[in-house]
Computed example of a mutant assay.
Amino acid sequence: MANGKSLMTGLLVGGVIGGLATILTAPSSGRDLRTQLKQNKQKLESILIQLKDDSISLKESVVKTAQESAVVLKDVTADLQKSIQTWQEEIEPHKAELQKEISQIEEKIKELEQTLNK
């Protein structure tokens, strides 16, 4: 939000400085100058209104996106938990088999050590 305020401030200050520079260097009569000022004021007002509308639209889009992403995040989390649970259930029989094989290997190593120590 700070960048948006800085941009808005920069545009406003730049517009004012540009307008003043134009006024001071313009070789026109007072009437022409007032007409130009009035036109420039109207342009500036329309630009500010457009910026306001755009910022409101952007805010609404951000809020909507945040709400949608919260729902998607919940769905992804639920799916991930299901996947992890399924994976754990699938590896459980293999886990028992691996533990059994490791025990058998340990026994064979002990037997081999006993055979070598004799």
Rank of each mutant, 00 (worst) to 15 (best):
residue 2 A to P: 07
residue 5 K to A: 09
residue 6 S to M: 09
residue 7 L to S: 12
residue 7 L to M: 04
residue 7 L to T: 07
residue 8 M to K: 05
residue 8 M to H: 10
residue 9 T to K: 02
residue 9 T to I: 06
residue 11 L to E: 10
residue 13 V to R: 05
residue 14 G to I: 13
residue 14 G to S: 13
residue 14 G to P: 09
residue 14 G to N: 14
residue 16 V to M: 07
residue 16 V to K: 05
residue 18 G to R: 12
residue 19 G to L: 12
residue 20 L to A: 01
residue 21 A to G: 10
residue 21 A to S: 12
residue 23 I to R: 09
residue 23 I to P: 00
residue 24 L to F: 13
residue 25 T to D: 11
residue 28 S to F: 06
residue 29 S to N: 14
residue 29 S to L: 10
residue 29 S to D: 15
residue 30 G to W: 06
residue 30 G to I: 02
residue 30 G to N: 07
residue 32 D to A: 02
residue 32 D to Y: 01
residue 34 R to S: 13
residue 34 R to M: 14
residue 35 T to Y: 02
residue 35 T to V: 00
residue 37 L to N: 13
residue 37 L to A: 10
residue 40 N to M: 08
residue 41 K to V: 00
residue 42 Q to C: 00
residue 43 K to F: 03
residue 43 K to R: 04
residue 44 L to Q: 06
residue 44 L to S: 05
residue 44 L to R: 03
residue 44 L to T: 01
residue 45 E to A: 02
residue 45 E to S: 02
residue 45 E to R: 03
residue 46 S to N: 11
residue 46 S to R: 03
residue 47 I to A: 08
residue 47 I to G: 00
residue 49 I to Q: 08
residue 50 Q to F: 08
residue 52 K to P: 00
residue 52 K to E: 13
residue 53 D to E: 09
residue 53 D to L: 06
residue 55 S to G: 01
residue 56 I to P: 01
residue 57 S to C: 10
residue 58 L to V: 00
residue 58 L to S: 06
residue 59 K to I: 06
residue 59 K to M: 08
residue 61 S to W: 02
residue 61 S to Q: 05
residue 63 V to T: 03
residue 64 K to V: 05
residue 65 T to D: 09
residue 65 T to A: 11
residue 67 Q to W: 08
residue 68 E to Y: 04
residue 72 V to K: 06
residue 75 D to I: 05
residue 75 D to N: 10
residue 76 V to W: 13
residue 78 A to Q: 15
residue 78 A to E: 15
residue 81 Q to M: 11
residue 82 K to W: 02
residue 83 S to L: 15
residue 84 I to D: 05
residue 85 Q to E: 12
residue 87 W to T: 14
residue 88 Q to D: 14
residue 88 Q to T: 04
residue 89 E to G: 00
residue 89 E to M: 04
residue 90 E to Q: 10
residue 90 E to R: 04
residue 90 E to F: 02
residue 92 E to F: 01
residue 94 H to E: 15
residue 96 A to F: 08
residue 97 E to H: 01
residue 98 L to N: 09
residue 101 E to F: 01
residue 103 S to C: 04
residue 103 S to D: 15
residue 104 Q to D: 15
residue 105 I to A: 03
residue 105 I to M: 04
residue 106 E to K: 03
residue 106 E to W: 04
residue 108 K to I: 14
residue 108 K to W: 06
residue 109 I to Y: 06
residue 109 I to W: 04
residue 111 E to M: 08
residue 111 E to P: 00
residue 112 L to T: 02
residue 112 L to H: 11
residue 112 L to W: 13
residue 115 T to W: 03
residue 116 L to V: 11
